[in-house]
Design a protein around this nucleic acid. Sequence first.
DNA 1: GCAAGCCTGACC
DNA 2: GGTCAGGCTTGC
Length: 288
Amino acid sequence: MPELPEVETLLRGLKKRVLGRWLGAVDVRHPQVIAGSPDEFSRQISGRQILGARRKGKAIAIELGLRTREDGGEKRYLLVRLGMTGQFTVNPVAEPLEPHTHVRLGLDGGKEELRYVDARRFGRLRSLAGEELEKLFGGMGPDAPRITESQFQKALSNRRTPLKSWLMNQQFLSGVGNIYADESLYIARLNPLIEAGQLSARQSRRLLRALKHVLERAVELQGTSFRDYIDIEGRPGNFLPQLRVCRRCRQPIERVVISGRSSHFCPHCQPQPRHRTRRAKAKRLARS
DNA sequence: GCAAGCCTGACC
DNA sequence: GGTCAGGCTTGC
């Protein structure tokens, strides 16, 4: 299931395999995975050269060059969001299609193609003009692996939403999904229900450190082995049965639902926020 | 029946 | 504006 490290891996793969190549025929086999009109999508992206690819959070934008003068000199971007089961692969055209292959993008002379496969069809492909892309990426918070401490703290301030929801809200910080949100909260020993804006400077530093550590580690391990990487739920990828006890203190892991997402945490190591004392409140007021 | 990411729409 | 529930989808 693609979280940021998986998306980063795809980005690297795309750069390696398709940069400089030309998109030929576009075959949309299941219109649902195209945002907007599938016909327009095909028309807008086919016949263009792949000039680059970049990522923000879990979204990838593939830069497509000018085709002819009739394009009005407009570049296009192919925006890819993998949802939860989306995959992109380069295959020989003659190779049999995997089930759930929804889009085929011909490459160059037509011997190979890019295939979009997505069992659950939560993912979306979309054709965007340059300014549409800038607007979209501009509306997203800083990319999680690159956010600075001051950006992080600023984004947290005054947010009343639970820390867990905050971490997963792409407009504050982009690229964090459920697993890495839980995992970084666990490492930072922070309860998912703490109000985001209530974190002390120290706690937010701890959280950011944990988050970056988890993401970096996951990117490193991608494609080699996840075997020595076990998240809080005990899932290396997500195959192993769930871990029921905290690996730090051996107490049972608790599950709560926050903004419709299940969150796993250790009530002992990540204690519930204490209610604010009058003294703490006075202190806060004095500071502001 | 539950899990996921993201969008829509409803609520204050 | 900020926040959150609901719905999409299918394999386990």
